[in-house]
Design a protein around this nucleic acid. Sequence first.
DNA 1: TCTATATGCAGTAAGATTGCTGCATGCCAA
DNA 2: TTGGCATGCAGCAATCTTACTGCATATAGA
Lengths: 102, 102
Amino acid sequence: MTDDQLDLIFKALSDSTRRRIIDHLSKRPAQSLFEVCAASVAEDGIALSRQTVSQHLAVLEKAGLIEIEWKGRTKAHSLSVSEDDIAAASWLTKYKPKGNET
Amino acid sequence: MTDDQLDLIFKALSDSTRRRIIDHLSKRPAQSLFEVCAASVAEDGIALSRQTVSQHLAVLEKAGLIEIEWKGRTKAHSLSVSEDDIAAASWLTKYKPKGNET
DNA sequence: TCTATATGCAGTAAGATTGCTGCATGCCAA
DNA sequence: TTGGCATGCAGCAATCTTACTGCATATAGA
């Protein structure tokens, strides 16, 4: 796992909008851009423009956290969390206290 | 764990310089600002100004990952990773695949 | 073919981030 | 008391981020 990859993953996770998108995609995979927009409004009450959501999805894709499948003219986004992603995002556990905290 | 807290922790971890500082502090706690600067040059070959390192330390402190103890005119920085921090940084494990990936 | 729909790309503006320099403050030690 | 050292704060420039609007492209279906 390179430093750049860690950067991408942590940066992707450092925005609550993107964390919400991850949550939506975990509940229902293969959502189109419009569906993610709709879910954001319906479940979180947060209205974002299509392009804004598109950019967030691009960040998540760049970090390797979601995967894309084109179905005709619609782009299906699904969560794609690998073991490597989990390991990277758990980077901090390396520095876990040895049971001596208050 | 609030969304804001997750933002702070992931943002703090999304910079390789800050991850390196965490690593230095884990190896040797209670380092002053100057010592962190020196370690960055000595161990990583990266020269950063005192103020730049100070800012990175402030981000880490704001995220609650390090703690400060003043000793006279020097500020001793130590790693302070709580169980909550570990849990927050492991946020992605919620979406761990159920053993069906390639 | 033609239209409606799903998405992409370009451009923009406000705000955050990251690095820096310079000056101010505050404490230890002689 | 005073000199020197560790740190803080203010300010600045370059870049990145996050949101947006508007236009272009491509595909499914009538």
